[in-house]
């Protein structure tokens, strides 16, 4: 169960995240000046790259947790639940990266989508981790699911540079300046740079809060499953022969058999 310290730190992180996001929005939409080249459109820079950064951070966390589960010395079901939680949050942020990128691309490049290397990699990443989450929904016992999804998570992460390299070569001739290059350019206004940095921090806090919350839910779901299983075993040992009990048992078994949502 949730400890008091965990609950309070989660609330504190949530509060800070809320404040920072509000500040980013206010600064990004109203305080910072419009850009010389991009005009008002530049305001999207305060949300799009930070959201993309969080997506990569989340997948990084998933991979580290997968390794920690696969390594026998650090094997603990907690790593598996954390990997799953981080992947789910990562998929949300990857989706947002694609949406905001598309919204930005339309006025900036005149198209909703362009076959740029970074865009294509992000789209494939989105599908890769949707697959990872789908694999997690396959009913199996805890250890089996944990091992399989840890391997899948790890392979997906190893695949990312291969995918990226292939699409970079594929698009070499059409490569246009991508968003991140613009942010790294030294010409960026001081106020704007600060807001961008704030955006990175704000969305990272949002990620941490979501991860803590999602992990908490996964942990509770897991303990519900475990308690149900313990009760089943207990009931079976205590009264093995009454007819009415057996019908109750089969109902319970059906419930446990259902795909878990962890």
């Amino acid at each position: 169960m949730e400890s008091k310290g965990y609950r309070w730190s989660r609330r504190a992180v949530g509060f800070v995240a809320l404040l920072l996001v509000a500040a980013t929005v206010v600064l990004g939409l109203w305080i910072t000046p419009p850009d010389v080249v991009q005009g008002q459109l530049v305001r999207l820079i305060y949300v799009h790259p930070p959201v993309a950064w969080v997506a990569y951070l989340a997948y990084g966390v998933t991979s580290i947790c997968s390794v920690l589960y696969l390594w026998k010395r650090t094997r603990n079901l907690k790593w598996d639940l954390l990997a799953a939680s981080s992947a789910e949050v990562g998929v949300i942020f990857t989706g947002l990266t694609l949406i905001t990128g598309s919204i930005w691309g339309r006025p900036a490049w005149g198209v909703w989508w362009t076959w740029d290397a970074r865009l294509t990699t992000t789209a494939l990443l989105f599908v890769l981790y949707l697959g990872y989450l789908a694999l997690r929904r396959v009913p199996a016992d805890n250890h089996q699911r944990a091992v399989r999804s840890a391997i899948a998570g790890l392979i997906a992460f190893i695949d990312v540079p291969i995918v990226h390299q292939s699409v970079v070569w594929w698009r070499t001739l059409h490569q246009s300046a991508t968003v991140l290059n613009a942010t790294l350019s030294p010409k960026i206004h001081g106020e704007m740079a600060m807001t961008l940095l704030l955006g990175f921090i704000a969305f990272t806090f949002v990620y941490v809060w979501m991860l803590m919350h999602r992990y908490q839910i996964a942990d509770m779901e897991q303990s519900v499953l475990d308690v149900e299983l313990e009760q089943l075993i207990e009931e079976r040992q205590r009264e093995p022969e009454t007819y009415s009990d057996q019908t109750v048992l089969t109902q319970d078994v059906d419930q446990i058999d259902q795909p878990s949502k962890v």
Binding site: V127, G131, A134, V163, Q165, S166
Partner: peptide, 8 residues
């Protein structure tokens, strides 16, 4: 699972 991984 396989098609995105095998896309390269």
């Amino acid at each position: 699972l396989l098609v995105p991984v095998a896309s390269p």
